[in-house]
Design a protein around this nucleic acid. Structure first.
Lengths: 247, 247
DNA sequence: CGAAAATTTGAGCACGATCAATATGTGTGG
DNA sequence: CCACACATATTGATCGTGCTCAAATTTTCG
């Protein structure tokens, strides 16, 4: 991939990206389900009790590279992007986090070592390390360890999952990943409001903006997707798109 | 990458891969340095106290997908490969672990959810979860959480690090990664005994065996590397190789 | 409405995939 | 110790995906 490439510049995130509000109840339910499927009911409940909820809006910086990593986040709703530190643009996308995902500093109590930025509005569970340590609650530490291990495995799988796919399949996979996080089922199909630009998608998928465009256009022309606007996609038939992308 | 690819079969690891023994002291020092640089002196010492050392030989299965993940490993010496479960070959390489790296089950106490196989002989620190839990030692749980967070970040960086590189650069990066783990400085340069076959490297790097061969041959012809045997490489001048690969 | 940003389209070509054949190990039994 | 068989590695020829550079377009926002 990018066989002959030398990346040129781009910078993320460049602006606040308001995404349409979503039915709160549905998402709460969805978030809870994901949370519990990721870490089990009891653990989820434990985190609920110990953490502090925080709402965020698209574009908000949730953690900065140099900030002391004195907390651990669990995404409840929305999408959070993780970006590598980069003195010079473009910043590399490390990954996206959805509800149930754990965001932990690379060096606990020292530094996050990456930037976390909200891509949509959403909600976060903040677990302050200091507080938790002071409590001396071993249970919680074990629960966090559990969550971290799960996240490690999930992250690896997500990243490696793209590795062998041709770009078309990567893009489809990405769309479904986004859909799981912030998609909605309507009578038109799966509606996904992409919370980022084409070039950020390209970086995440290890390809170029133009390629993303071409593929999306191709799909649009064949009715596999509908583009209300460049950022508002509708997938009338997920199975058909998947079949086509992996053909 | 692999734009037109449909992966064909290969199976790892296929045999015990004895790698030459190495000067124990040098490695002990190296392992300790890596360990401490990854997690700090005190934490490393804590783990040392709580864990049980275990030697392994190349080819040994250290964890199986379905096994209950009732321990956490810290690699002291050698290289451990992590492989995705795959009912049908080929198995995907999730990553390689070197001294200082943490290997933790995806679901603590439930299942590893991946296979860990020793690629070389080496040594492992085994931290039994049951024992640790029984101790009720919060400190240790925090230390493990710390290690897990660090591993998460390291793993992500390692995987994403390859993302944008053309295959040549990936292969060079891989060689240096291996060198860091098991390489030796001699008067001939950096000596690296690859503990896996060409096709496993190809899978790890998201390319094909033939491509790996062509690149290595190219480098050999230009004196950038010496191949004592297909698996025994010498890099006379690391800087030169790096420059060439990233040119 | 106009400027800037983001997206889309076009033409050409390089990297790396593919398929097929050959060569080099590596281990086995005679 | 050699000869065979099999596993692994290398080389060759061809071609497709996706990168490049460049030029429209369309969106977005002040």
């Amino acid at each position: 991939m990018l066989g002959q490439a030398t990346r040129t510049s781009a910078s993320f995130p460049r602006q606040v990206l308001p995404t349409g509000m979503e039915p709160a109840e549905a998402l709460r339910g969805k978030a809870r389900r994901r949370l519990e499927s990721h870490m089990g009911k009891e653990t989820a409940a434990l985190f609920d009790r110990c953490g502090r909820e925080r709402d965020f809006v698209g574009g908000e910086a949730l953690a900065r590279c140099e900030d002391p990593g004195d907390a651990v986040y669990i995404v409840l709703e929305g999408v959070v992007g993780l970006y590598a530190e980069a003195p010079s643009e473009p910043r590399d996308v490390l990954g996206y986090c959805y509800s149930g995902d754990l965001i932990a500093p690379a060096r606990l109590g020292v530094a996050w070592s990456f930037d976390a930025t909200a891509l949509t509005s959403g909600r976060l569970l903040v677990l302050s390390l200091q507080e938790l340590r002071d409590r001396g609650d071993g249970t919680l530490a074990w629960a966090l360890l559990e969550a971290a291990c799960a996240e490690l495995s999930r992250r690896t799988a997500r990243l490696r999952g793209y590795w062998f796919l041709p770009v078309k399949a990567r893009l489809a996979t990405f769309l479904f990943e986004m859909d799981e996080g912030i998609g909605q089922r309507t009578d038109r199909g799966l509606e996904v409001d992409l919370p980022m630009f084409r070039d950020e998608i390209a970086i995440y998928l290890g390809t170029r903006t133009e390629t993303i465009c071409r593929i999306l256009t191709g799909w649009k022309d064949r009715g596999l997707i509908v583009m209300d606007s460049p950022r508002k996609l509708v997938i009338p038939d997920g199975a058909r798109l998947r079949a086509e992308a992996f053909a």
